[in-house]
């Protein structure tokens, strides 16, 4: 075994959990209160009326009313045209339009924008992000993610991962390593950041992070936000800042290969920018921002183009408004 293998093996033993390790939520609440921590749960949304109601009900009832683990439950929306916000509010979530937060900084499209603005808007010492498209929602999607942050002060960033599917249907699938992770991100990490391969699902949309870390991170507003977080935090604080929790099965709408192509394009931009900025490669040419795909109909092929430019928001701690609001 190489040194890296030994290191990864050790890290997996100490920093990888199963959600059942944290089944006792009452104990978790006690530990949270003893540590003097507050926790905000943020669900970023865009047209999620089919699933948002259930997520809000389950989290609010189980992790606020029954066990006071979460202090704040917020939905931050990118401008849904369906009833996402109405339904979320009707079941007791605080709802915000992303465009209404930090108006003077404008409004950019993308999930990363919502996550970034959540740092300003929400109050918790820990922010737990959970995607809104989970069909089999359960309290563990939040409680098990914040647990390592509560019990282990040196852990800063906790990622979710899920079981790997034995078979896939067209419509619904339990999430495994993820196609983009296995085909693109893991090979890239293996080449440039081998230690980060220990993260089973670096792109998962469920993670919990200390505010003290989140406020220092750059935020690509689109597909690259999770990749940039992982790389930036790793380079700053090393692998021991991370933990990961197996949440078993996650059921959600399957994304088309065409959509995953766009996602990969955005992530690759972020990745290349990172390794160039860090001096790991030099003299990269100017990267094109147009992603080209082909739609085939019989023997006719139609070219489609999409401009994908991974803009980045600066670390929140660099904003005077943030410093003032949060007394930093």
């Amino acid at each position: 075994m190489s040194d890296i293998d030994i290191r990864l093996d050790q890290w997996l033993k100490t920093n990888t959990y199963h959600h059942s390790d944290f089944w006792d939520i009452q104990e978790l609440v006690k530990a949270k209160e003893a540590a003097g921590l507050t926790i905000s749960l943020c669900i970023p949304t865009l047209n999620e009326e089919a699933t948002i109601g259930k997520e809000v009900i389950v989290f609010k009832s189980e992790l606020m009313d029954r066990y006071p683990l979460i202090d704040e439950l917020a939905v931050i929306d990118s401008g849904s045209t369906d009833r996402t916000l109405e339904i979320a509010a009707s079941f007791g979530a605080d709802t915000y339009l992303s465009s209404d937060i930090l108006r003077e900084h404008g409004d950019k499209p993308g999930k990363g924008e919502n996550l970034w603005k959540a740092i300003y808007q929400l109050k918790g010492d820990i922010i737990c992000y959970v995607d809104a498209d989970i069909k089999n929602i359960h309290p563990r999607f939040a409680s098990a993610l914040v647990a390592p942050l509560i019990y282990r002060p040196k852990v800063e960033y906790v990622k979710a991962f899920y079981d790997r599917p034995l078979a896939l249907s067209d419509e619904l699938r339990p999430s495994g390593g993820g196609r983009v992770t296995e085909i693109m991100v893991r090979p890239l990490f293996s080449m440039f950041f081998p230690e980060l391969t220990a993260l089973m699902q670096p792109l998962s949309g469920e993670y919990a992070v200390r505010r003290s870390v989140l406020e220092t991170l750059h935020f690509p507003i689109g597909y690259g936000v999770e990749t940039s977080h992982v790389i930036d935090l790793y380079q700053d604080r090393g692998l021991d800042a991370f933990a990961q929790v197996d949440l078993d099965k996650r059921v959600h709408r399957n994304q088309s290969t065409v959509d995953l192509g766009k996602m990969s394009f955005g992530i690759l931009q972020t990745f290349l920018n990172r390794i160039q900025a860090n001096g790991m490669v030099s003299d990269l040419p100017d990267l094109h921002g147009q992603f080209r795909q082909f739609l085939a109909e019989g023997h006719r092929y139609e070219l489609t183009r999409k401009e994908i430019v991974e803009e980045e928001r600066p670390p929140m701690i660099s904003l005077p408004e943030y410093l003032k609001k949060h007394g930093r």
Partner: peptide, 13 residues
Amino acid sequence: REVLFANMVMAAE
């Protein structure tokens, strides 16, 4: 409301 509805969701799933 939320307690009952959450119990409904979890029992149903």
